[in-house]
């Protein structure tokens, strides 16, 4: 597991371990000790996975937006790698979120998919950031890839609130939507634990991918050594050094 060149554990491994530990504690609490949710019974316990995933996912996308702005501003490979790493983890969490959402929706509402504003918004955002990842894969030139994918990430992130509001209005003007917002005190501790768990896990995953991507992108974007200066050509009769302006 540990990387070879300097050996030993790195900070992202610590984050991963911390995240998994918090998730485990949070889930044990949520699954076995917290009371069952009043309306949905034990099915409601997916809340402890679903809600933390949603919070963490939004944070990961926010980080991706920040990295994209930094990449546009500085043009540095380290931010470019962070854009890709965070977009990947964001898409992973997002896919997880949609899966959990439909697992929850089936016993709760009797359907796999519901046009709940948050669920719908996260589906749209998943496609937006998938587009960013696809774009990165079709641009071979490193500088262009950095610029264009960072621009796409900025545009995608800026669109998130307006997508959410449009879907929300679209739903509420059709039929009122009620979501189980009432959170009892005994739910909060496991929720918080699991949320921090997902956040640390996400940060650890981003760190792992960032480290894996960074070296390649740094090599792509770094200025290679200049080729050795070529000797000046001298024609017969040309005074030494005059033709090429003192190339000696």
């Amino acid at each position: 597991m540990a990387t070879t060149q300097s050996g030993g554990l790195r900070w992202e491994h610590g984050l991963l371990a911390l995240g998994l530990a918090l998730l485990a504690v949070g889930h044990v609490q949520g699954l076995f000790f917290a009371p069952a949710e009043a309306m949905m019974g034990d099915v409601g316990r997916i809340l402890y996975v679903h809600v933390p995933t949603a919070w963490a996912d939004m944070l990961v996308y926010t980080a991706c937006f920040g990295f994209a702005v930094a990449a546009l501003w500085t043009g540095k490979a380290t931010y470019d790698a962070a854009v890709e790493a965070s977009a990947e983890v964001g898409v992973l969490y997002n896919a997880l979120l949609l899966f959990q959402g439909s697992v929850w929706a089936r016993p709760t509402w009797g359907v796999f998919w519901t046009w709940d504003p948050r669920l719908t918004t996260s589906a749209v955002v998943l496609v937006l950031f998938l587009g960013v990842l696809v774009l990165r894969r079709v641009i071979p030139e490193p500088e262009r890839r950095l610029n264009l994918s960072a621009i796409a990430a900025v545009l995608a992130y800026v669109g998130v609130p307006i997508v959410y509001f449009s879907v929300k209005w679209w739903r509420t003007l059709h039929q009122p939507f009620s979501s189980p917002q009432t959170v009892d005190g005994s739910f909060i501790t496991p929720l918080r634990l699991a949320a921090f768990g997902m956040i640390f896990l996400g940060a650890g995953l981003i760190g792992l991918r960032w480290r894996a991507l960074r070296r390649g992108l740094e090599r792509d974007l770094a200025t290679p050594d200049l080729p050795a200066a070529a000797p000046a050509l001298r024609l017969p009769g040309e005074a030494g050094g005059s033709a090429a302006g003192g190339a000696l």
């Binding site: 749209v124 496609v127 587009g131 995608a156 669109g159 997508v163 509001f165 449009s166």
Partner: peptide, 13 residues
């Protein structure tokens, strides 16, 4: 692929 998801609010409205 890049444009249509971004246009969801525009389409809805």
């Amino acid at each position: 692929l890049l444009l249509f998801p971004l246009l969801v609010p525009c389409l809805l409205a």
